[in-house]
């Protein structure tokens, strides 16, 4: 049990009631946001699995081909060939919004495979390297999109989780406890004042009675000499 350090007054009680209402609404909203984020992440998880598998396959193939090509043609020759290769890859990015977070979506337009070096002093392994790495690049583009989305969503989810927890376990119980405390104190005060009023009323009544009795006595005292003799 923990409560806020504020004076138990009627106006504070009203303010707190308003805060509690707002907090509860915020809690419900954040809870919804958390659910949306979890759903989105789980949806991405399926895609991540597929893309990573595809990427691993293509990467194995491409790296193996490169090693083979390098050992056949020699490292320096490969470097010379690579210097002459030029593709126009175009990356177009868009954003979609999930639970208030802007997430980029990428669409990659790759240059189509074409031979960019002399046939005379290159072998088919060089061609294959190029084809394999172009395929690998396609997966890499997808991975970039997924990585960005997952990082952003994961951070947002952690943040939301903390807020939900803070509201659920600290703010709302605090407000409730404080409200209960203020309610009790105010009720006690009410009872006190009611009792005081009763006492005052009783005393006033007694005083009035006494005054009347005294008056009566005085009256009868004043009358007596007149009537008795």
């Amino acid at each position: 049990m923990s409560r806020l350090n504020i004076a138990p007054t009627k106006s504070n009680q009203l303010n707190l009631k308003r805060s509690l209402k707002m907090t509860s609404e915020g809690f419900a909203l954040l809870e919804q946001k958390r659910e949306i984020l979890v759903m989105e992440l789980m949806r991405l998880l399926d895609r991540v699995k597929v893309v990573q598998q595809e990427l691993a396959q293509r990467r194995h193939k491409a790296y193996a081909t490169l090693r083979k090509a390098a050992s056949h043609n020699g490292y320096y020759h490969m470097r010379n060939i690579a210097n002459g290769i030029n593709y126009e890859h175009d990356v177009h990015s868009d954003t979609r919004v999930v639970a208030g977070i802007r997430i980029p979506t990428l669409s990659v337009k790759q240059g189509a495979f074409r031979s960019q070096y002399g046939f005379a002093d290159t072998d088919s392994l060089v061609d294959q390297t190029m084809i394999d790495f172009l395929a690998l690049l396609e997966s890499a583009g997808k991975l970039a999109e997924l990585e960005t989305a997952v990082w952003l969503l994961a951070r947002e989810l952690k943040k939301t989780q903390r807020r939900v927890n803070a509201l659920e376990h600290i703010f709302i119980p605090n407000y409730k406890d404080t409200l209960r405390y203020i309610g009790e104190v105010l009720e006690g005060k009410d009872l006190d004042s009611f009792f005081t009023m009763k006492m005052v009323k009783k005393r006033l009544a007694e005083a009035a009675e006494a005054a009347e009795a005294a008056e009566q006595a005085q009256l009868s005292d004043g009358d007596a000499p007149d009537t008795t003799p």
Binding site: A62, Y63, L66, A70, Y75, M78, R79, I81, A82, N83, I85, N86, Y87, E88, H89, D90, V91, G111, V126, T129, M130, F133, L134, L136, L137, A140, G141
Partner: peptide, 21 residues
């Protein structure tokens, strides 16, 4: 616009074949 790679010489060489800087 496009792709870029940062890495060691051999890895970069491979991606150069896909036309990356």
């Amino acid at each position: 616009m496009g792709f870029h790679i940062i890495g060691d010489a051999d890895t970069v060489l491979g991606y150069r074949f896909a036309g990356l800087s």
